[in-house]
């Protein structure tokens, strides 16, 4: 259950299971993103050992894999907190006060956007559009979408699962 509710929780790196994941996808056309997605899902982040292993198995250089990892907003080179709050800051949510919401969350958690609380419980991030623009402001907590999001609603979502 812990894993289901805390997809960003950092499990210890395990080269054998990582190899299994990579082998499972490597037959796809253009397998790199599916592999990186699966590895991040499993380990919470993509550290140097993951980059090296992916490069080795796909016969790429680590430069190439690193270039791809560093391009996409989702990929983490470092582990996140146990819960990840993503608050939408795109226009529809702006029109419904998301900037105010971000400020409240920053104060409540004592961190800025892109930071993790000291106890590594919560990471607060921005996101640009969750596709829930008729029910702004929106947020996503550990992969679950929240509409008409408020500070209370978001912190409750984290609290419940903490």
């Amino acid at each position: 259950m812990l894993k289901k509710h805390s997809p960003h929780f950092h499990d210890d790196w395990d080269p054998e299971s990582a190899r299994g994941i990579i082998e499972q996808y490597k037959g796809l056309e253009g397998p790199l993103l599916p592999i990186l997605n699966a590895l991040q899902e499993r380990f919470g982040h993509l550290g140097d050992p993951a980059v090296r292993l992916v490069a080795e198995i796909l016969n790429l250089t680590r430069a190439e894999v690193h270039g791809v990892v560093s391009f996409y907003h989702d990929y983490r080179r470092e582990p996140a907190g146990r819960h990840v709050i993503k608050v939408c800051r795109a226009e529809a949510c702006q029109s419904m006060g998301c900037e105010d919401l971000v400020g409240r969350l920053e104060r409540a958690l004592g961190i800025h956007l892109s930071e993790t609380t000291h106890d590594r419980r919560v990471t607060l991030e921005e996101v640009y559009c969750l596709g829930n623009c008729a029910l702004s402001p929106s947020a996503m907590v550990d992969g679950e979408l929240l509409g008409r999001a408020s500070e209370e609603k978001i912190l409750a979502a984290v609290g419940e699962q903490a």
Partner: peptide, 20 residues
């Protein structure tokens, strides 16, 4: 050799050897 890449994107793009 494919030893170089661009790290990051946008304004933060920077040439990187290997994994930075």
């Amino acid at each position: 050799t494919f030893a170089l890449t661009i790290d990051g994107r946008g304004f933060a793009s920077v040439v990187s050897a290997g994994m930075n």
